[in-house]
């Protein structure tokens, strides 16, 4: 079996086991209602995590994700409530701003040869700061479009609701999977994560790919901001604090190697769902502090990093030579 599939399989197994245990304790958790909420409540995290998956696959990191989400919510709120734009136009502007922001970070990383960690850390401060300058206070959004969106959903058998933002997340994952595994861009991302110098010698456009990767991550963070704005009907400069770290956790728990080159977008989906499962369990339990989510995620992360070490430092199994005789 492909080595990169092993951590994913482990994640999937843990998710199923955890879900079975949770259902055994609270049978109510086995319903489309809970599943629908999983998707809705974690939509913004999932969307951001798809972008993060590409960044980590290429061997980089993007710390600006949470700040870009926060900035986007404030920008949308400002455009809708103060300028009076239609939300769809505001969304478009916000996505373009986020994309340009990401492209600038990607260009800095490639052309200035600065580690992505530093560049996106600067990006994080910039975006968070800009959001606070726009409005230090939360801006509530009142618009019939928002009301309409929150009222539209697909009713699942069993009373669950597949909301618009849940559907957006699923669509982003579907597109992300296609992009990673079926396009030249996806191949180039994996190539950069495997060996940047080899990739360059093999004709991978390193500059363009690097810029596109960070542009994709920021654009998806912008889209996560749109979803967050729909989810909370507000724009607040301090929203989505630390979401970049949750996204990194989801990606790693989903089986992507932090050093790049190995991993699957589908794994990130399970990583996000596992985080959602822990939160839901805590809600059902009712006595546990929500901080237990962090502790469980921390434990899982640690376990997965250990697991990856074991899988990838074990001497690669050499296939028997298959010389044609």
């Amino acid at each position: 079996m492909n080595r990169s599939l092993r951590p994913l399989l482990a994640t999937a197994t843990i998710f199923v086991l955890a879900y079975i245990l949770a259902v055994a304790q609270f049978p109510g958790m086995l319903s489309t209602r809970v599943l629908g909420n999983f998707l809705t409540d974690n939509a913004f995290l999932g969307i951001a995590a798809v972008g993060m998956t590409f960044v980590i696959l290429s061997g980089g990191i993007d710390l600006s994700v949470g700040a870009v989400i926060g900035f986007t919510t404030v920008l949308i709120a400002a455009l809708v409530m103060w300028v009076g734009l239609h939300p769809l136009a505001a969304f478009g502007i916000a996505l373009i701003v986020a994309a340009a922001f990401g492209a600038a970070m990607g260009a800095a990383i490639h052309y200035l040869q600065v580690p992505s960690f530093i560049v996106t850390l600067a990006g994080m401060f910039l975006a968070r700061g800009a959001a606070s300058v726009l409005s230090p206070d939360s801006i509530g959004i009142k618009h019939e479009f928002y009301t309409a969106i929150s009222k539209s959903y697909i009713l699942l058998p069993g009373g669950g609701r597949l909301t618009v933002i849940g559907m957006i997340m699923l669509a982003v994952f579907a597109v992300g999977i296609l992009l990673a595994h079926r396009t030249r861009f996806g191949s180039n991302v994996y190539a950069l994560g495997g060996s940047e110098s080899s990739a360059a010698l093999m004709g991978v456009p390193v500059a363009r790919t690097t810029v596109l990767i960070y542009m994709l991550s920021s654009t998806l963070a912008g889209l996560a901001g749109v979803v967050f704005s729909l989810y909370t009907s507000a724009g607040y400069s301090l929203s989505a604090l630390g979401v970049e770290l949750d996204a990194i956790a989801a990606v790693v728990i989903g089986g992507t190697l932090l050093t790049g080159g190995y991993g699957l977008v589908a794994g990130t989906f399970i990583g996000v769902m596992l985080q959602g499962l822990v939160q839901t369990y805590i809600v059902f339990d009712g006595t546990l502090s929500s901080w237990w989510t962090k502790i469980v995620i921390g434990g899982l992360l640690f376990m997965f990093i250990l697991l990856q070490r074991l899988v990838f430092t074990a001497t690669p199994r050499r296939r028997k030579l298959a010389w044609k005789t």
Binding site: S4, L178, R182, T183, R184, G186, S187, N188, Y190, A191, G193, G194, S195, S197, S198, A199, L201, M202, G203, V204, G261, Y262
Partner: peptide
């Protein structure tokens, strides 16, 4: 060897010039 250890043999042979249809690589 200046190839990509983390990708398939086929992809190492065709990286940068994969045949595509509608933007999707024809694996």
């Amino acid at each position: 060897v200046n190839l990509l250890p983390n990708r398939s043999v086929a992809e190492n042979l065709f990286l940068g010039r994969q045949p595509t249809r509608f933007g999707l690589v024809r694996r």
